[in-house]
């Protein structure tokens, strides 16, 4: 039980760290990946807290699909910037 608490606290710290990273990093692609990592850690925490249904949604939508939609959106804005230059 104590070990599990330790793991959850560690995961929470990793979440805070990668969300700070997402704000600080200048490279936007790395920033999007950091946001995805936050979701991934969140889904593991849900799993450890006995909520597998929520964990599955978080992993599929939060870490998977939304990260890619961000990347597609980033790709589009970059194209527009290059055209305007």
């Amino acid at each position: 039980m104590e070990l599990q608490h330790g793991i959850i606290i560690l995961m929470g710290l990793a979440m805070i760290l990668s969300s700070i990273l997402a704000m600080v990093i200048k490279d936007l692609i790395s920033s999007v990946i950091a946001v995805g990592v936050v979701s991934l850690f969140a889904s593991i925490i849900y799993l450890l807290l006995q909520a597998p249904d929520v964990a599955m949604t978080e992993a599929a939508i939060g870490a998977g699909l939304s990260t890619l939609i961000f990347l597609y959106a980033l790709h589009k804005t970059k194209d527009a910037e290059e055209e305007n230059d």
């Binding site: 597998p52 249904d53 964990a55 599955m56 949604t57 599929a60 939508i61 998977g64 699909l65 890619l68």
Partner: peptide, 25 residues
């Protein structure tokens, strides 16, 4: 599998649908 077994195991329509969408992705 996830959405057909929704009443037996964790997961359901939303999760299964998201997994299928990731295959399309």
């Amino acid at each position: 599998y996830i959405f057909v077994n929704g009443h037996l195991s964790p997961g359901g329509g939303f999760q299964g649908g998201a997994v299928i969408a990731s295959a399309v992705l």
